[in-house]
Design a protein around this nucleic acid. Structure first.
Lengths: 340, 340
DNA sequence: ACTGTCAGCCAAAGCGCTTTGAAGACCTCT
DNA sequence: AGAGGTCTTCAAAGCGCTTTGGCTGACAGT
C-alpha cells in the first residue's frame, strides 16, 4: 500500500493525504480524520526511502564505531545501548552503527554525513580537542558528545558526568580518613574523563598539602588484568599507597585480586574506592568486601542522550549546551581510617 | 556531485555512467575507465537513499534489539559487535539497531522488513521454536541466527557453537577425575544454548551411570550475583557438589566468591569449569585460581556472521545451512580429582 | 455587486538513482 | 547492396514521497 493507492482510494490527491498525515494545517479536520482512519485501517506506512529521498531526513541516529584488530569495544557500550533503547523504542528511532578503522573515523563521518544516512550523530569517549567534534561541528550535522572534549574554540552539545568532582570528593574522603599515600588507577589518559578524574583527585590531595605523585598513578585500558597489574606494582613499590582510587569496577576486580594475592586486606591495609557505571551483571555491593563507589548510570545517560538527540532532530534543542550530571559517592565497607 | 552533473561533465548519459560504475557489461572499456576516473577525481558517491528507492537494496543489515526496563542487554553483545566491525569496516556495511519492546519484537521485524530498511537480519539468543525465526522465514528476508532454534519445521541459516559437545566433554572430564556430584549453573533455560549445555552435561554423566539431579541445577540470567547465589545454595545443600559447571565467566566470578566465602577451596573442595566467551576484559587465566574453560570467541563468530550475511545479500550464499563450531576445552588449575 | 481573503484541495515538479526499450554505428555474411 | 548481428549509447520511465505554486469556492467587508 503506497501513497498513490491510498489517495486513489480516498479520491483525494497525494498532496492532501500526505499533508493530512504529516499534520500540516491546510487540511480540514474532517478530511484529516478520514485519511488517518483509512491509513490505519489499511496499515499504510510511508516508505522511508522515498521520504528520505524527498526530505533528506533519515529518522535515524548514527554512531561511528571504532574497530580494528587491536580495538576492543567497551562493555560500557551496551549500557549506553540499553539506555538508548529505553528512549528509542516507542519513538521509532533507529541507530546506525558504522564500523570504521580506528584511524579512518573521519572518512566515515564524512561519508555518513554526505550520504545523509542519519539525522544526528552520537560521539563517545572524546579526547581533548577531539577532531571528530571539530569535524562534526564544521559539517553542521546535529550531534551530541557523551563526555566532553576540552580545548575546542566553540560550544557544542554534550552530556557528561562530573568526573572531576566525583574523584575530588572520593579523594577528599580518603584524606579525611587520614590517608596520605593515595594512588590512582585510571583509564586511558588520552581520554578526557581520565584527565578530569586525575585533576579532581589531585585537587583534593593538594588541598591538604598532599601530592598525587606520578609513581602513584597508573593508566591503562580498563580490564581486570590491567587493574591487577597496576595494583600489584603500586603495592610492591616503596611507600606503597594505603588507599586506591580506581576508575572502573572491572579494573577493581583485578585490584582486589592483587591485594589479596599480596596477603593484604581491605580495608585494613588498603582502602579502595572505584567508579561504578552501574552494570547489571557486576555490582559493587557484591564484592567480597563491598566496594565504596562513585556511581553514575551510563544507561540513564544513554536515555537522556537519545532524548536530546531526538529533540535536536526535531529542532526543539538548538543551542549547543553542555549538561553535567553530579555523581553519587556511595560509601561501603572498602574504606577505613589509615593505620597510624 | 550527483549522477546528472557527472554525466553532463562527461558528455554521457546517466544510464551509461551508472552502468559503467556498477560494472555492467554493455559499456566499452575505455568509457568505463574515463567514468571511473572522473568519479574518483570528483569524489562522486551515489546517494544511497536514491539508490535504495530505485533498487530496494539498503546496504545495511538489521538487528532488532530487545529492550525494556526489565531487559538488560548482554555484555556479550559488544563482542559480537567487535567481530561484526572487523568484517564490516572496509565493506561499507552498516548495522541498524532497532530497539523494540521485548514483547513487540515481531511488530518491529515486520516494520523493518516492510520498509526495506535492511537487506538482511541478524537474530541472537534464539529459543526453541523461536517465533522470530519463523516470521523471518515467512517474510522471506535473508537472515542468520546466532545460535540455533530447535523444533522448527524448515531449514534456516545459523551459526552456533557446539554447546552440547562442550559441556559433554567438560562433564566427562570431571567424571573421569572421579567426581560423582556434578552441578550445573546455567543461563536462562528458555534459550537453546542453555538447553543444549544441559543436555551435553547430562549425557556425559549418564554414560557413567550418574544423574544430573534437578537439585544440582540452577538457571538464571548470567550475572555475578546470580552465580554467587546459585553456588551458595548448591554448596549449602546436603550432598553438595564436588564440581561445578558454569555457563559464563561472569557468573563464575560469583561462584568463586561463594566458594571462598564458605571457606572452601578450588580445586581442593570444588572443581570449577566455566564457559568462556573470550572477553578482552576478563580472562579465565587471571582468576585467583586459573579457571578451566570451554572456550569459543564470540567476536570470531561475529566476523563470520557478518561475512555470511554479506554473502547472502549478494546472493552468494543461498542454501539455508547451519554451521556448528567446535569448542575448545582449556584445562587450567581449577579442577582436580575428587576427594576419595 | 465587487473585491479581497482564506480555507481546502490539487497537479506536477522534484529528490538521485536504476533499468527498460530503442536506436545509431559498425561489421560480417550472402 | 541489403540483411542480420554485435557493440555502445541514450532518452525516458519509474521508485514513493514531499513541496511548490496554483486553483476553486465560500464568506466577509465596503
Amino acid at each position: 500500500m503506497n501513497l498513490k493507492q491510498l489517495s486513489d482510494m480516498l479520491a483525494l490527491s497525494q498532496t492532501t493525504v500526505s499533508r493530512a498525515l504529516n499534520g500540516y494545517p491546510e487540511v480540514s479536520e474532517e478530511t484529516r480524520r478520514r485519511v488517518a482512519d483509512a491509513a490505519k485501517r489499511h496499515g499504510y506506512r510511508p516508505n522511508p526511502s522515498a521520504r528520505r529521498l524527498a526530505t533528506g531526513k533519515a529518522g535515524m541516529i548514527g554512531y561511528v564505531m571504532p574497530t580494528g584488530a587491536a580495538v576492543d569495544i567497551d562493555p560500557h557500550f551496551v549500557e549506553f545501548l540499553s539506555g538508548l533503547g529505553d528512549y528509542a523504542r516507542g519513538h521509532e528511532l533507529d541507530l546506525v552503527l558504522s564500523p570504521a578503522d580506528a584511524d579512518e573515523e573521519e572518512t566515515t563521518y564524512r561519508r555518513v554525513v554526505a550520504n545523509k544516512q542519519v539525522d544526528a550523530v552520537y560521539v563517545s569517549s572524546p579526547r581533548p580537542a577531539d577532531r571528530r567534534v571539530s569535524l562534526l561541528n564544521q559539517l553542521g550535522i546535529p550531534f551530541i558528545v557523551h563526555g566532553r572534549s576540552e580545548g575546542l574554540d566553540f560550544d557544542y552539545a554534550f552530556l557528561d558526568i562530573d568526573n572531576e568532582a566525583a574523584f575530588h570528593d572520593a579523594a577528599r574522603l580518603l584524606v579525611q580518613l587520614g590517608h596520605t599515600r593515595v594512588a590512582l588507577i585510571n583509564g586511558d589518559l588520552g581520554e578526557t574523563f581520565a584527565i578530569l578524574r586525575e585533576r579532581g583527585a589531585r585537587r583534593a590531595l593538594a588541598a591538604s598539602g598532599l601530592a598525587l605523585a606520578p609513581e602513584r598513578m597508573r593508566s591503562a585500558a580498563m580490564t581486570e588484568e590491567n587493574g591487577f597489574r597496576a595494583a600489584t606494582s603500586l603495592l610492591q613499590g616503596d611507600a606503597p599507597p594505603t588507599a586506591i582510587l580506581c576508575s572502573s569496577l572491572i579494573m577493581a576486580l583485578g585490584v582486589v585480586r592483587a591485594i589479596r594475592d599480596l596477603g593484604l586486606s581491605i580495608p585494613g591495609d588498603v582502602s579502595v574506592i572505584a567508579h561504578d557505571d552501574v552494570f547489571p551483571w557486576l555490582k559493587p555491593e557484591n564484592f567480597s568486601v563491598p566496594l565504596t563507589t562513585t556511581r553514575s548510570s551510563i544507561r540513564a545517560a544513554g536515555q537522556r542522550i537519545a532524548e536530546r538527540l531526538a529533540a535536536k532532530i526535531s529542532g526543539l534543542e538548538s543551542d549547543p549546551r553542555g549538561e553535567v550530571w553530579p555523581v553519587d559517592l556511595v560509601v561501603r565497607g572498602s574504606i577505613a581510617g589509615a593505620k597510624s
